[in-house]
Amino acid sequence: MLDKVPYRVLLPGWIREEARDKEEFKRLVLEYMKRYPDYRVKKVIGDFAICERK
């Protein structure tokens, strides 16, 4: 049950600044999240990636 608790990862501001469209934003978020190998992104709300642990 604890593995289903959502985790929030603060995304750096450069991701939003560099992204020209939604597809590039998604790519940059997924690239950044490689730094957190045990987390899987469910959605992005504001400046946070909402994740669950693998």
Rank of each mutant, 00 (worst) to 15 (best):
R53L: 09
K54F: 07
R27Q: 10
C51T: 03
E31T: 15
V41G: 07
R20E: 06
M1C: 08
D3L: 15
D38V: 10
K22D: 14
Y7S: 11
V44K: 01
W14H: 15
P12I: 05
E52I: 11
D3Q: 15
V5Q: 03
R35H: 12
R35I: 09
G46T: 03
D38P: 02
Y36A: 07
V41W: 11
R8P: 00
P6Y: 04
E31D: 15
R40F: 11
D3V: 14
V44Y: 01
M1E: 12
R40A: 11
K34Q: 02
R8F: 14
V9Y: 00
L30Q: 14
A19I: 00
L28T: 06
P12V: 02
Y32V: 09
A19K: 02
P12F: 00
G46F: 05
R35Y: 05
R40Y: 11
E52Y: 07
D38W: 09
K4M: 12
K42D: 11
D47T: 13
R27T: 09
L11E: 03
E23G: 04
P37C: 03
V41D: 06
V44Q: 05
L10E: 08
K42A: 07
R16Y: 13
R35W: 11
D47F: 13
A19G: 00
G13I: 14
K4A: 09
V29T: 07
M33Q: 08
M33A: 08
P12R: 12
Y32W: 12
Y36P: 05
I45N: 05
V5C: 02
R35C: 05
F25C: 00
P6N: 04
F48P: 00
K54S: 04
L2C: 06
D47W: 11
Y7R: 10
E52L: 04
P6T: 04
V5K: 06
E23K: 15
R53M: 02
I45L: 09
A49P: 01
P37Y: 01
K34T: 12
G46A: 12
E23D: 12
Y39G: 01
M1Q: 10
K26D: 11
D47M: 14
R27P: 00
K26R: 12
P6F: 11
R16W: 10
L28G: 01
P6A: 03
K42I: 14
K26W: 08
E52F: 08
P6E: 09
I50V: 15
R16T: 12
R20W: 06
I50Q: 00
R40W: 08
K26Y: 10
L11Q: 05
I45F: 07
L2N: 13
P37A: 06
A19W: 03
Y32D: 06
K22P: 05
D21K: 03
Y36W: 09
R20P: 02
C51A: 04
R8T: 01
Y7E: 12
I15H: 06
L10T: 07
F48Y: 08
K26M: 07
L28H: 03
D21P: 02
K42E: 13
F25T: 03
P12N: 09
K42Y: 10
P12T: 10
W14K: 13
I50C: 02
E17A: 15
L2I: 14
R20Y: 08
V44L: 01
K34H: 13
I45E: 13
Y7V: 12
E31M: 11
I50G: 00
R16A: 14
D38S: 13
R40H: 08
L2W: 01
I15A: 02
V29C: 04
